[in-house]
C-alpha cells in the first residue's frame, strides 16, 4: 500500500506492507539514522517525531502515519548538530549507535518542558538506552544544552 506523509518537511509517498512498522519503511526509504536497537519498544533508538511528538517508530504501524508529519534527525540537521557537539565535548559519545534516537528525544524535551529539574530531565529521557556509558556524560550535555543547573 501507499502512504502519503510529510517527511522532513516534504510531501512523500511511502510504500509499505500492511503489517509493516514505520521504522522499517523509513529505513527502506534511505533514512538510516533510524536504528532498531531492541525491536521490543524498550530502547528508544528508533525515535522519530510524529506530529511533533517523540514516538517509537518500531512500534507505530506505518499506516498510522498517513497524512501526518514525520521528522527524523535528517530533517533537523542543524539543531541536532548543535546538541551533538555538546555531547562530544562532554565525552558522552562512544559508539554513537543510540545517538540519533537520543538526540531526537532531547530536542523534543527542550520544546516540551520549560526549565526542567534534573528529575524531570531523567524522567523524560528514561527509556533511551546507551550501552557504552553511564549516562552521566549525557546528563551533563543535556544540562549544558538546556542551560539549566
Amino acid at each position: 500500500m501507499e502512504i502519503e506523509v510529510i517527511l522532513n518537511h516534504k510531501p512523500v509517498t511511502l510504500t509499505a506492507e500492511k503489517d509493516e512498522f514505520l521504522a522499517d519503511v523509513l529505513r527502506r526509504h534511505g533514512l538510516l539514522s533510524i536504528r532498531k536497537g531492541c525491536n521490543t519498544a524498550c530502547c528508544g533508538l528508533c525515535t522519530v517525531w510524529l506530529e511533533g511528538k517523540p514516538t517509537l517508530s518500531c512500534n507505530i504501524l506505518a499506516i498510522r502515519a498517513t497524512g501526518k508529519e514525520i521528522i527524523t534527525i535528517e530533517g533537523i540537521a542543524e539543531e541536532a548538530d548543535e546538541f551533538a557537539n555538546i555531547l562530544v565535548a562532554e565525552g558522552a559519545e562512544q559508539c554513537g549507535f543510540c545517538s540519533p534516537g537520543f538526540i531526537m528525544t532531547v530536542i523534543a524535551m527542550k520544546k516540551e518542558l520549560e526549565n526542567p529539574s534534573e528529575a524531570e530531565i531523567v524522567h523524560y529521557l528514561t527509556g533511551n538506552l546507551c550501552r557504552c556509558t553511564g549516562y552521566m556524560g549525557q546528563l551533563r550535555a543535556v544540562k549544558t544544552y538546556l542551560e539549566v543547573k
Partner: peptide, 12 residues
C-alpha cells in the same frame, strides 16, 4: 502511567 517505559512509548 508515568513509569511505563519512556515518553516515546507512552506516545503510542
Amino acid at each position: 502511567v508515568s513509569n511505563i517505559i519512556g515518553v516515546q512509548f507512552r506516545n503510542v
